[in-house]
Write a protein that binds this DNA or RNA. Structure first.
Length: 334
DNA sequence: ACGATTTGACCTAC
DNA sequence: GTAGGTCAAATCGT
């Protein structure tokens, strides 16, 4: 039986760190193109310190969260590796699905992409399970929809809006997993990194992730996320009044796992969080083949709501998974 | 009018 | 033949 006080403590700690990050953000100049950035070394030190604290707090919180019933909005992100893939979607429950990750690489082993220019990217493919598949920081244009065998819902295909302009080959497809979970979960598979913008942006796969932000800050390559969340949401029917998201981190208004962020609240940290390489570089240690969801969940922590849920979803999916693995993972570098 | 989405056809791999 | 992925004309929304 989970202790409510522990949970509240965990949430409180996360909140504090989050607020700290928010307060320190002007120093980080994560989104302040008007001001010249501080020296890279200072920036990186501060960023890493904050990130370490955030991860530690999140770890504590998530440790408690593990005791809770799986909330909603599970999100897991993983660099797809053929050997760690689950069998094609039992599509049974949201909990189990949270950890299910498929790759186009594996599918590619079964079949190759049909048209030219799309078959060479099996190495740049990753998948995520999320409740918010359409707001991942990039602009997508839908180019197809298909009913897939064994699925209840059609699969939607998207490609980068800037495919023509910048030759960006990034694509993704979104598959709703079932209608048993609330909110509904989507399996999103990404192919190809974005080449329509800076390398940092392309590598992260999401301009919104804190680690990506930190990376961009340290590398001084982070660009204003011009065509980010606003248009991403515009690609779908879940259109809300999405404006250019606030440049500063939003207040951590609600850490309750059962709550859902509105677009205005989402700190622009939807999935995919980033490819493995980025995550390894700035957040975590080496991945484990048998625990591949953990890094991704961690990577999403800073964003708030969705990460919590994602983590919980993962935990629910792997009940035997000891927290020690997570702690080892989180504190490896501290 | 322009851009985005829809949808059936087509292509390719298995 | 089947299934997944993409194309492109038609349609829709602004």
């Amino acid at each position: 039986m989970a202790c409510v006080a522990d949970r509240e403590d965990a949430v409180r700690e996360v909140t504090q760190v989050y607020e700290l990050i928010k307060l320190q953000q002007p120093l980080l100049l994560l989104h302040s193109p008007q001001h010249p950035p501080p020296p890279p070394s200072t920036t990186c030190q501060l960023a890493q310190s904050l990130l370490a604290k955030a991860l530690r707090a999140l770890n504590v919180a998530l440790s408690v969260m593990k005791q809770q019933p799986a909330p909603v909005t599970p999100i897991s992100v993983i660099k797809a590796e053929p050997h760690q893939l689950s069998p094609p979607c039992s599509l049974a429950s949201a909990e189990s699905q949270a950890a299910i990750v498929l790759s186009t690489a594996t599918r590619g082993a079964k079949r190759r992409r049909s048209t030219e220019g799309k078959k060479k990217n099996t190495s740049s493919s990753w998948a995520t399970v999320t409740a918010v598949p359409y707001d991942d920081g990039y602009e997508w244009r839908k180019y197809g929809e298909k009913k897939i065998n064994g699925t209840l819902f059609t699969r939607s295909y998207f490609r980068c809006t800037y495919k023509d302009d910048a030759g960006c080959l990034a694509t993704k497809h979104v598959q709703q997993m079932d209608n048993n979970s609330d909110p509904p979960m989507f399996h999103v598979t990404y192919n190809n990194d974005h080449t329509c913008n800076t390398s940092a942006r392309a590598n992260t796969g999401s301009s919104s992730n804190l680690a990506a932000l930190l990376a961009g800050c340290c590398n001084m390559k982070q660009e204003p996320t011009g065509h980010a969340a606003a248009a991403a949401a515009a690609t779908m029917d879940m259109k809300q009044e999405v404006q250019e998201p606030p440049l500063l981190l939003p207040a951590l208004v609600d850490l309750q796992p059962s709550a859902c962020f509105h677009h205005e609240q989402i700190p622009r940290c939807q999935e995919p969080l980033f490819p493995v390489s980025m995550e390894q570089q700035f957040v975590c240690g080496p991945f484990r083949d048998d625990d591949s969801e953990i890094p991704s969940a961690t990577g999403s922590c800073i964003s708030g709501e969705t990460s919590w849920d994602g983590y919980s979803g993962h935990m629910a999916a792997a009940e035997d998974d000891p927290l020690l693995d997570l702690e080892r993972f989180l504190f490896m570098d501290y």
